[in-house]
């Protein structure tokens, strides 16, 4: 078992390593212009410079840990993460009760669904002009756009989750004496969680896409802002370093969410632990 895991990791590393080698060879041989595609080594060096604290350590400016995390990359990643979390929370907190209502009540569904169906296909990016008009620059328009991106996946999955609850559980609960409120809270809600959580996962993914775009238009820090700024200076090594950071951060968020989901759904059939 353990041997297989190592083997799989080794196998997964082969293709990236080969690509890196080809990339390095192409750069070293002068086959491609370093301004267009810098070498992997140049990217790694730039990445380190981006990550490392800008100022030398000075106890007068606060503790060692604060200094350690004072690098530009860390600040950018924190800025992006903050917007993702805030935007996602706003979107999900609005979508969850609305989805529960629309899933549980036919009347609520009839009232709200036509509006949802019209607004849902509009990509959050299309709201950029309006968001600047409404919220100006800075975090508010970014958080607005991100919350839009998170809202619809959570909403749609919550509706589907409540609607697919197996009637046998409702019958059993009624037979055991449960009233409508208890049934909603203790039967429909938990029975819908697998769907809701997959909506949450998609919502966070969308929020992460939208944060990068929103930082390119409205704010002065964050990973999205940084790679656009690097383009203006023609720092292609920094662009790639920023992109890889975005990829790693996205991976970290997604695996974190997956772990939480696995814990919450430990009762669910067909889940690997």
């Amino acid at each position: 078992m353990r041997r297989n895991t190592w083997l799989a990791a080794l196998q997964g590393a082969v293709v990236p390593l080969v690509l890196l080698a080809i990339w390095q060879a192409a750069s070293s041989s002068g086959l491609v212009n370093a301004k267009i595609l810098p070498s992997p080594v140049a990217v790694a060096v730039r990445w380190w410079a981006y990550l490392a604290p800008a100022e030398p350590y000075d106890p007068a400016n606060g503790g060692y840990v604060a200094w350690l995390f004072s690098g530009e990359l860390i600040m950018d990643a924190m800025g992006s993460l903050y917007r993702v979390v805030m935007g996602f929370l706003v979107g999900a907190v609005l979508a969850l009760p609305m989805g529960l209502a629309m899933g549980a009540s036919r009347a609520a569904f009839r009232w709200l669904n036509p509006l949802v169906e019209v607004l849902r296909p509009i990509p959050p990016i299309a709201y950029i002009p309006l968001s600047i008009l409404w919220f100006g620059l800075g975090n508010p328009p970014a958080i607005f756009l991100i919350s839009l991106g998170a809202f619809f996946p959570v909403l749609v999955n919550t509706i589907a989750g409540v609607r697919q609850v197996d009637g046998i559980y409702l019958r059993a609960a009624r037979n055991l004496g449960a009233g409508p409120l208890t049934i909603f809270r203790r039967v429909m809600l938990p029975a819908a969680t697998p769907y809701i959580l997959s909506g949450v996962r998609i919502g966070i993914g969308t929020a992460f896409i939208v944060v990068i775009v929103s930082e390119m238009i409205a704010v002065n820090n964050g990973l999205g802002f940084r790679i656009l700024e690097a383009r203006e200076y023609f720092w292609s090594d920094k662009i790639i370093a920023g992109m890889l950071t975005i990829g790693l951060l996205g991976l970290a968020i997604d695996s974190g969410v997956t772990r939480i989901n696995n814990h919450l759904l430990r009762w669910h059939r067909g889940l690997e632990h």
Binding site: A173, V187, A191
Partner: peptide, 11 residues
């Protein structure tokens, strides 16, 4: 009532 499909709450 006891159902053929058990109807236990899986969560």
């Amino acid at each position: 009532m006891v159902f053929q499909e058990y109807a236990l709450f899986p969560w």
